[in-house]
């Protein structure tokens, strides 16, 4: 339980023990244990309000833990500085802001974890181009993100995280509001990352096309872990992948929208 001696190979990439957190006065995490080992692909599942997003945001330090222990790559979170080992995809439906930005500009901002003084060297530019190619967005590199569809926004946000060239990829609902064609693109990008040895923790509403990639699923309910093991297959809970999950996507895809109706 206490911090182990530096034993790089077998150390969990993420180690969360007894985590509790509150948003306002509402307890959202009530003693969550989550361990992710090197090379694993772990899906965090659960209904809306189950705490899965809060758990992920706590792991990247965006929600303070009121109790419990968190270590990343074997380093206690308070002493963790190696942010370039993590690629983070926050829960967003858009990559746009109040001023236009090109796809390449947004993706390049991910590279700041490695080029702290903001100077983009040749290797940084190459990493950005690789990330764009991974999500099949190279042809849109100089387009404005404001002109993209919802699925393309997610591809940009994921490319921004991949530009870091992270060992650990943490994604909060990357499939929200993404049509099936775009989900396939994202699944392919993820497959290549996993094949290259990346560790992945992702929050999902349903497994969808990612299902074959998932090693382990952790299901949260009311801020507690209720399942930690192989991905559940077609259980009756509405938050988990059900037999009818294809139909809402087809209906959604037929009417292109930017915001995540499914989230």
């Amino acid at each position: 339980m206490e911090s182990q001696p530096a034993e790089a190979a077998d150390q969990p990439v993420i180690s969360l023990r007894g985590a509790t957190a509150s948003l306002g006065s509402r307890p959202v995490l009530r003693g969550v244990d989550l361990t992710v080992r090197r090379g694993e692909v772990v899906a965090l599942l659960g209904a809306n309000g189950s705490g899965k997003s809060t758990a992920v945001r706590a792991i990247v330090g965006q929600v303070p833990l009121s109790d419990g222990e968190l270590a990343l790559f074997g380093t206690d979170f308070n002493r963790f500085r190696a942010w370039s080992r993590i690629g983070y995809v926050p829960q967003r439906t858009t990559a746009a802001s109040g001023v236009p930005a090109t796809v390449r500009e947004v993706v390049s901002s991910g590279r700041l974890a490695r080029s702290r003084f903001g100077v983009l060297r040749k290797s940084d530019k190459a990493a950005v181009e690789r990330a764009l190619a991974l999500v099949d967005m190279s042809q849109y590199a100089d387009a404005s993100v404001n002109a993209l569809s919802g699925g393309q926004h997610q591809r940009v946000l994921i490319a921004r995280a991949l530009a870091v060239e992270p060992e650990l990829l943490i994604m909060d609902e990357p499939m929200a509001g993404v049509d099936l064609a775009n989900q396939e693109v994202l699944a392919n990008a993820l497959r290549e990352q996993v094949a290259a040895g990346s560790t992945v923790l992702l929050v999902l509403h349903e497994l969808g096309p990612l299902e074959p990639l998932i090693d382990r699923a952790v299901v949260l309910r009311d801020g507690c872990v209720v399942h930690d093991g192989p991905p559940p297959e077609a259980v009756g809970q509405h938050a988990l992948p059900g037999h009818d999950h294809v139909h809402p996507h087809a209906a959604h895809g037929a009417e292109p929208l930017r915001t995540g109706l499914l989230s």
Partner: peptide
């Protein structure tokens, strides 16, 4: 001089924090 850093912060503050800025 700091336009890349300021761009990242103004574009997506949460992401910028997780890159260690």
């Amino acid at each position: 001089g700091l336009r890349r850093q300021l761009f990242a912060v103004c574009q997506d503050e949460e992401f910028a924090r997780v890159t260690g800025l």
